[in-house]
Design a binder for these strands. Structure first.
Lengths: 128, 128
DNA sequence: CAATGATATATAGATAATCTATATATAAGA
DNA sequence: TCTTATATATAGATTATCTATATATCATTG
């Protein structure tokens, strides 16, 4: 059975870039921030995050540096100009996708037949 | 390079169930309808669609039947009660996901510092 | 009439994103 | 001391979608 739990479905990079566009963060902090801001919808796994960060760094969207905080050395990430460009692009794509889904779902659910719907009725009977 | 073109990112089943909740359709018709309704954002590939339909039929979310139309035999799909239940669930999950992304993106973009944002400033400088 | 492109369905294999599992290390708390 | 939380990392499995390929009919066009 497909668990359906926790799919970040392709937008993880955008969300991370968004966080880093606000302030420098270390990995674990990103996981927690995403979880908090999304009311526990996003539970990004460490095994997903770190390879992603490494890839983004390799593509010059981020740089990283070590910093000690509370006796513990943490690896902080900072977004680059390239990363901000990428974020802007990803946000645009997300809007387009979101709108497209809305268009499909709006479909013919409204109480009249018109607009993109050229047929009349058709909703109702189920079999199963 | 990741083409970034055409990712339906996990919601294809929901979109197909939505279409079929409005009227019975054959496969190719679903591809065209999705493309039209989404203004060319969704270009679902046949190689993605048919295995998906077969799986949904196996899970009793759809039934299929052959029908001749214009001298051509087409395989039509009809949503079942189970399928409508699944659609309702998927729509709910989509809303939750969409909201969560909005929460993260809203972040601290607004012109004031408050709400979920406890820090001041932080947006601006890039490196790269 | 033959070639081409659109329609229509189908399967196999490749690719990409995420997850699980595992490993390591430090700090805090019981 | 043992356990849990913090913190980073990699390998391998899973899942979704894509590309490529196959087949067949119909419409168009040269």
């Amino acid at each position: 059975m497909a668990s359906d739990k926790n799919q970040l479905s392709g937008n993880t990079a955008m969300l991370l870039l968004q966080l880093l566009s606000e302030k420098d963060m270390y990995g674990y902090e990103m996981i927690e921030t995403l979880q908090q801001r999304s009311n526990d919808v996003f539970e990004l796994k460490a095994g997903t995050l770190y390879p992603l960060l490494h890839g983004m760094e390799a593509r010059n969207q981020l740089i990283s540096y070590e910093k000690e905080a509370g006796g513990k050395v943490r690896r902080y990430y900072r977004i680059t100009t390239e990363g901000r460009k990428e974020l802007k692009q990803k946000k645009k794509e997300w809007e387009i996708y979101r709108e497209a889904v809305a268009q499909v779902i709006a479909g013919c659910d409204m109480g009249y037949a018109g607009g993109i719907c050229s047929w009349i009725g058709g909703v109702g009977y189920g079999i199963g």
